[in-house]
Design a protein around this nucleic acid. Structure first.
Lengths: 113, 113
DNA sequence: CAATTGTATTCCCATACTGGAATATGTCAA
DNA sequence: TTGACATATTCCAGTATGGGAATACAATTG
């Protein structure tokens, strides 16, 4: 079985640097038209539109028409799942690191408390 | 110009569900041998080894030998970059959401404060 | 309606990705 | 050394991906 189409998954959507850049632009600039995004990205318009399409499909951005322009907005709450996931490991790089690591290794060796 | 090899990038590494699962297992279980990971994942050993290889290359996990076993440990701090990135948008889904959204949209319309 | 502007879609190419199977490598034990 | 066990690597197939170019589509203006 070959690779499964992991697109339409938030983690995959943000794996692309350009798409992260788009997210950053929308986070900083609020709602923006495609043209504005194209101007900020060093990429041809069709490519930007395609990346926006991915983000749209995943729900990370939403669009509404404004004349012939399409205004994109960030739906930031869709990123929450990523935040929540990494947050689970936050303690592992905190200042408690040493103690936690030690405990984990002891456990791995099968030692009793 | 085709796609650039985005592998060896943390965001890409965690885009794979199986790899996230491996990370979770290591976070929960501390240091674990490949065999233990294979037992917990419904995947053949070579596939697991390959995923571990990716995580290793990115630095998300480290290995040390123990006899014929390879013990993998999570290098959680490598995930910090992801945490930091999403954290930038945390406020956008907080309870201030409405006010922030409003402000952003006003700004987009070019209105003055 | 025609022309123009803004954006999305389609087709193509080169490459990358994952999983499967087989095999190689490494390590210990007898 | 031989054999068994643990893990890594290689080769293959099918699919997905991103960017380029051309084109289609939509909306506004004249």
């Amino acid at each position: 079985m070959p690779r499964s189409p992991t697109t339409s998954d938030v983690f995959n959507a943000i794996a692309e640097p350009r798409r992260r850049q788009l997210i950053e632009l929308l986070a900083a600039g609020g709602a923006l038209a495609v043209g504005a995004l194209v101007a900020s990205m060093d990429l041809p318009q069709p490519v930007v539109s395609k990346h926006l399409g991915v983000l749209r499909k995943v729900g990370i951005v939403s669009v509404h028409k404004d004349g012939k322009q399409r205004i994109y907005s960030l739906e930031a709450d869709r990123l929450k799942v990523v935040h929540d996931w990494v947050k689970n490991f936050e303690q592992l790089w905190s200042h408690h690191l040493d103690r936690i690591k030690l405990r984990a290794e002891r456990k791995a060796r099968g030692e009793q408390a």
